[in-house]
Design a binder for these strands. Structure first.
Length: 279
DNA sequence: CCTGCTACCTGATGGC
DNA sequence: TGCCATCAGGTAGCAG
C-alpha cells in the first residue's frame, strides 16, 4: 500500500477500530516481518499495552501505546486485515481454504488486527520512543501537514542539485510522495523530472508546491470513497486510474498537449512524463 | 555531509 | 503450455 494518501485513508479507517483497546496478545506468524528486531521484541513491548491512537507520519502507520509505539510500513504491497476474533484468525490465517496471508497479528479486546505482505518487504517494529526509529526520526515535512508551505519548499529546492523526481521521492525532505504522485505532481506543474531542484524559478517552485498539494488531496478523496475495508480480502483502492494523468501511460497521448508520454529511468524507478509540455 | 547503487521478496504479465 | 525476462505504488545500508 503505497503512498501517503493511501496510508492516510487506512489510518483514518483504522483509528476508530483500535483506539482505546488493549493488546491482549501478539502473534508473529512470519518472523521476517519483524526483522532485524529480535523475534520477541514486538510482543514484549506491545502485550497488555493500550492503543491510545493510530496515526501516520509519512508512509508509516503508528500505533501509539500507553508506553512505547509500534510502527508499520507497507512498502510496496503490505496491507491490513481484520478478523472478528482469535478463532477466526486461527482458522483463516495462512490457511489453504478461505485463507488470508498474515505476517503479524494483534489480538485486541475486540477484534484482531493483522499485517499482511506476501512479498515480505513490509515491516512491523516496536519502539520505546519515537526517536529510536531512524526511519521515522529522519522524515522531513509531511506533505499533507500544514507545515508544508510554499516558501519553505522553495528553500529546500534551492538547496539541492538532484533531479526533481529524486528530490520529491526523498522522504527526508518532503515525506509522503512516492513514484506515482511525484510523477503526477511534476506533470501538473509542467516541469521536466530531470531538472535540477535548485534550477527552479520561484514561480515554478510555487507551481510544484501547489501541484503536490492538489494531487494528494484528490488522491486522498479517491482513497476514501469507498473507504478501506480490512475485512474484505478483495478490497483495494478503486478508481485511482481515473485521476492519474501520466503514470503508466508510456506511448499514449499527453492529456494536455499533442505530445506522447515517455518512460525513462531515474534512480532505478520508472518516470513517466511528456517531453513536449514539461520543461 | 551527499549521492548512487544494490539488496530485500513474491507474483503478475508478456514474449517466444 | 512452459520458461524466461521484466516489472511492480519503498527504503535501508553501503561505498565512494
Amino acid at each position: 500500500m503505497p503512498e501517503l494518501p493511501e496510508v492516510e485513508a487506512v489510518v483514518r479507517t483504522l483509528h476508530p477500530l483500535v483506539q482505546g483497546q488493549r493488546i491482549r496478545c501478539v502473534h508473529v506468524l512470519h518472523p521476517i516481518a519483524v526483522k532485524p528486531q529480535p523475534l520477541s521484541r514486538l510482543a514484549d513491548l506491545a502485550r497488555n499495552r493500550r492503543i491510545q491512537r493510530a496515526d501516520r507520519k509519512g508512509k508509516y502507520v503508528l500505533l501509539r501505546l500507553d508506553r512505547g509505539l509500534v510502527t508499520l510500513h507497507f512498502k510496496l504491497d503490505g496491507r491490513l486485515v481484520w478478523f472478528s476474533n482469535a478463532r477466526e484468525l486461527r482458522e483463516r490465517a495462512n490457511a489453504q481454504e478461505n485463507g488470508v496471508h498474515v505476517d503479524v497479528a494483534f489480538e485486541l479486546e475486540k477484534g484482531v488486527l493483522g499485517f499482511s505482505d506476501r512479498r515480505h518487504f513490509g515491516r512491523v517494529y516496536a519502539w520505546d520512543r519515537f526517536e529510536d526509529s531512524s526511519g521515522l526520526a529522519s522524515l522531513g515535512i509531511d506533505a499533507l501537514s500544514r507545515d508544508f508551505k510554499a516558501a519553505r519548499f522553495r528553500e529546500m529546492l534551492a538547496g539541492s542539485k538532484r533531479p526533481l523526481k529524486d528530490f520529491l521521492m526523498d522522504q527526508t525532505r518532503v515525506a509522503g510522495l512516492g513514484n506515482i504522485y511525484s510523477g503526477e505532481s511534476l506533470w501538473h506543474a509542467r516541469l521536466d523530472p530531470r531538472r535540477r531542484a535548485k534550477s527552479l524559478e520561484p514561480e515554478e517552485a510555487r507551481r510544484l508546491h501547489k501541484a503536490i498539494v492538489s494531487v494528494l488531496a484528490r488522491a486522498l478523496e479517491c482513497c476514501l470513497h469507498p473507504a478501506p475495508d480490512f475485512r474484505d480480502s478483495q478490497w483495494w483502492f478503486q478508481g485511482l486510474e481515473k485521476i492519474l494523468r501520466v503514470y503508466g501511460r508510456e506511448g499514449e497521448p499527453c492529456r494536455r498537449c499533442d505530445g506522447t508520454i515517455q518512460r525513462i529511468e531515474q534512480g532505478g524507478r520508472s518516470t513517466y512524463f511528456c517531453r513536449r509540455c514539461q520543461k
